[in-house]
Design a protein around this nucleic acid. Structure first.
Lengths: 209, 209
DNA sequence: GTTTTTGCACTGACCAGTCAGTTCAAAAAG
DNA sequence: CTTTTTGAACTGACTGGTCAGTGCAAAAAC
């Protein structure tokens, strides 16, 4: 089983170099943005010659696009796994959503730079990698939508909910809360943040306990 | 009463030019990002010579910072107004939150480019306007936090809620849902989106109606 | 012996910021 | 009322620097 669809015949050495380049690029682009990050910087941070970047990727944009696909692949796998594990243990759909919220938080905690970069680029228009972004967004949101749809089908969720909108809102809730957590209140624990979001999800905001 | 704090003695003509530059810059930067947008482009779209940009703003970054302050000023005013109007009419704090959600949606619908740009830049690190962003973020979130705190104080909300985290999550929910609405399902009406978010806020997701 | 990486010089496009000069409305002088 | 002066606002060609991408010979890894 090969990891990347765009490089079916990548040798182990090549794959390692590409991985180093992804890691260098993701932090730099998260901090500075795509245009403000130079290829020289990426090469330097990866500890690699500039020529190597172009030996492994056709261009700066292509490197970025493959980075996006790579990262979103990890995220969706993690969300799907959370949902399936919950279902296998006989949990409800609310439990599945809750597990996905936690999986999202864990992901963001582990790959904060990727998340930053993803949010920063997602709603841009007129960019070269626009179509890549659309695909990649749909992959992530679809996992949430599926759980919502199953919940509506089995009566666990109200039939009145708007599945695509609610899924987007839930994803946004987690994304923004997590980024805020990391940027502005890093002393909080993951459990704290998870608890706050669970409460919001389950409508336990109004009313005393 | 003068409008801008940074230009106390701005003539009417100057103010008009600055306004044109804001409008040109906000759409371009929302589409392309700060670094990918050139000063020449901004000047051209505003129908003004490049030199005029530098006559009115010390640098490209300063133009951007003042644009941020300008926009967030509009947003917070609108949120505060929604909260106060609700209170004046004897509404509950939940009503106030709901009114603020709607005000947020209306704002994003009216100034989509600004919202895009704000989200794209908010969590970046190592940028020149970092401190401006912190201030500006706090202004917006603080309005929501205040309503939550009042609600906790008068018993309308659970004492268990984490005010800063919940406020961030709510803001994120509205931001992301609205951006998604505009980007991916623009045929939806504002009322649709508002209804979906209200339902989420009031925990009316689980259970049949 | 083939694949991958290195190092480094080079090019051409692009771009932030500058500056000497122009415009024009309104104030001052006649 | 007419002419002159003033200065804020604006113009756009120009500069110095930056950067994506190239080319290639030699070394290293496999």
């Amino acid at each position: 089983m090969e990891s990347s669809s765009t490089t079916p015949g990548g040798s182990a050495r090549r794959e390692a170099t590409r991985q180093k380049l992804y890691e260098a690029a993701v932090t730099l682009i998260a901090e500075q943005g795509f245009s403000a990050t130079t290829v020289d910087e990426i090469a330097e941070r990866a500890g690699v010659a500039k020529g190597t970047v172009y030996y492994n990727f056709a261009s700066k944009s292509v490197l970025f696009e493959e980075l996006l696909r790579h990262g979103v692949g990890l995220l969706t796998a993690s969300l799907r796994d959370a949902a399936e594990t919950t279902a296998a243990r006989g949990g409800s759909r609310v439990d599945a959503l809750d597990a996905m919220i936690r999986a999202g938080l864990v992901f963001i905690d582990r790959y904060p730079a990727f998340t930053q970069l993803y949010v920063a680029e997602l709603w841009r228009t007129n960019r070269a990698w626009q179509s890549t972004l659309m695909v990649v967004r749909q992959q992530a949101v679809a996992v949430v939508e599926e759980v919502l749809r199953e919940g509506v089908a089995n009566g666990e969720f109200s039939e009145e909910i708007d599945v695509p909108l609610t899924a987007a809102a839930l994803v946004g809730m987690v994304l923004v809360a997590a980024l805020d957590w990391r940027s502005f209140q890093p002393e909080r624990s993951l459990d704290d943040v998870h608890a706050a979001l669970s409460r919001l999800l389950q409508g336990r905001v109004s009313g005393r306990r």
